[in-house]
Amino acid sequence: MNRALLLSCALAVSSAAFGDQPQVHVEPPHLQGPLTLAQQTETAAIRDYLESWKSLQTAFDQNQAALLDADFVGTAHDKLTSAIDEQAKLGIHTRYQDRAHNVQIVFYSPDGLSIQLLDTVDYDAQILKGGAVLTSQHVRRRYVVVLTPTQVRWAVRIFQEEPQ
């Protein structure tokens, strides 16, 4: 409980600089597997994951896939890049605004090379064409996310949304 509160506070402070901030709640890890997760690692992974939402939002809103490069790798990077390219060809863009995250780390691989987390996200999504909003919807979905370490941070390798 204390650990969850501590993490929530730490993440709230670290993300306060972004302005329109989502509420973030972090559940204590519920790990399968033999490896224990250091709190520093947990905090860093969740911080980097939440930051990846910022680059995702900007990349999809501006149709600039290159903005994903710092936060996404592998499959997640390829899929998101492809989606941005497709929407750019259609002359549309999408706007995602995350409102709340409920994050829990559920797997830390024995080799220490991947962390899996689940995140129930409340967000608003829009499709826009030019300046016109074509549709605007509020969504609550579960994200299954796998992060892997890069030289300086945890990057999102799998980023998959599914019904709750």
Binding site: L56, K79, S82, A83, E86, Q87, I92, T94, I127
Partner: peptide, 30 residues
């Protein structure tokens, strides 16, 4: 228009008729 973080696609539709998506057209979960 159909758009999500995994894919974005469109179909020209005659309203009153279905818009069809062939096998493999929409394949990214989300």
């Amino acid at each position: 228009y159909v758009a999500g973080p995994g894919q974005a696609l469109s179909r020209n539709v005659q309203m009153g008729e279905p818009a069809s998506f062939a096998s493999g057209a929409l394949h990214q979960a989300g």
